[in-house]
Nucleic acid binder design. Structure first.
Lengths: 196, 196
DNA sequence: ACGCCTCGTATGCGATAGCGTACAAACGTA
DNA sequence: TACGTTTGTACGCTATCGCATACGAGGCGT
């Protein structure tokens, strides 16, 4: 299905706003980016669509990566998920793993925060599980209580309470609780790539 | 200062890999994206740099936004921050606010996780503070203990233990503890935009 | 008032993007 | 083996990008 893109990302006004905020003229930005001033003028006014190569140079002139520049036009808002409103996450209560999602299910949500409880001996998944997250996802997990072992990409990492691990979430991974008490994890997955 | 961009983002091989993963032919992706198959072939082989307008259509055909597609080529690895290794965050102990950063200081880190303790009456900042985060940042904050008030962009939000709030981190904001006990927050800030 | 400088944009031109068409190779099926 | 289909890419053409040059407007200093 082709997304309706009547107009490409309105990058022009955004570039103009950033340039103004940095107090740069078109010729200043031309100097910094290596893109000509007339071209920058056309891009800002939406008269032309620059190639990626040129757009990256413009972004660099604004001290940004292009992905960052593009993201600046994504809308944002405050969203509160009350303690009583948490959504259930992917879990298997029968096996001793329960999970709750703490962040709202917003389009364009940057990081999903979830809370996981693992009973002794329980795991969030198993060896060879397909990755649950899209390519490009990253995850940080904070061990709040207990001890866990992270199995990822054939490697084993032991984590104690208070430890925080960060890794590529699109690699096959799961957590296990090798201890005799419940383990509690907070997991942050960023760059949920699919627009909902 | 112009960043050295000898080559633009290697988007071509990435598009090829994603297309293969989705089991699409060039003609399939052409259908989904509205970009011709020969053009897609040239882009994948790095023979041409598509315009932003075309690149966005290609990304859409892969069920991604262009910013996401571009980000996929950022490197990643597992990093563990032990409980004893946490870095101090921005805090003011004299005012009753202490903070620790739980995630590693990696280049390209997607989300920074930090823990904040607010003594009764303390705040993470004050009205009119400049934003601490770059444009495009988003933040989620989980109240682990106590109650806090979020002041953001002229609005006031009350949060209880277990509540999670998500908002644009580049807006002027701070948290206050209006209660009689310490408040503990975990904050997740995503899209740290500046490359370090 | 005048001259100079800065700024944004119009214009023309060469280079390149982007498409339609066609070809060759590979694959699947009878 | 023969045939049809699918796939990726070469090629030629048109449209657009991207730059150098130049112009007009506005601001500033004398």
């Amino acid at each position: 299905m082709v997304a309706a893109l009547a107009h490409p990302n309105p990058i022009g006004p955004r570039i103009r706003a950033l340039r103004d905020a940095m107090a740069l003229s078109l010729r200043d930005l031309a100097q910094r980016s290596g893109v000509s001033a007339p071209m920058l003028s056309q891009v800002e006014r939406g008269e032309t669509s620059p190639t990626l190569a040129v757009a990256e140079r413009i972004a660099a002139g604004l001290d940004l990566r292009l992905s960052q520049l593009l993201r600046l036009d994504e809308g944002g808002q405050v969203a509160i998920v009350r303690a009583s409103e948490r959504r259930a996450g992917t879990s298997a209560p029968a096996t001793g793993h329960s999970a709750e999602i703490l962040t709202p299910p917003l389009p364009g949500q940057r990081a999903e925060l979830s809370r996981h409880v693992l009973a002794p001996g329980a795991a969030t998944g198993g060896p060879g599980d397909p990755p649950m997250h899209e390519p490009g996802s990253r995850e940080s997990a904070l061990v709040q209580e207990g001890r866990v072992v992270l199995q990822i990409d054939g490697e084993r990492h032991e984590l104690a309470a208070g430890d925080c691990v960060t890794f590529d979430a699109d690699l096959s991974h799961h957590f296990e609780n090798p201890g005799h008490d419940d383990a509690i994890l907070l997991a942050v997955v960023s760059a949920g790539l699919r627009r909902s």
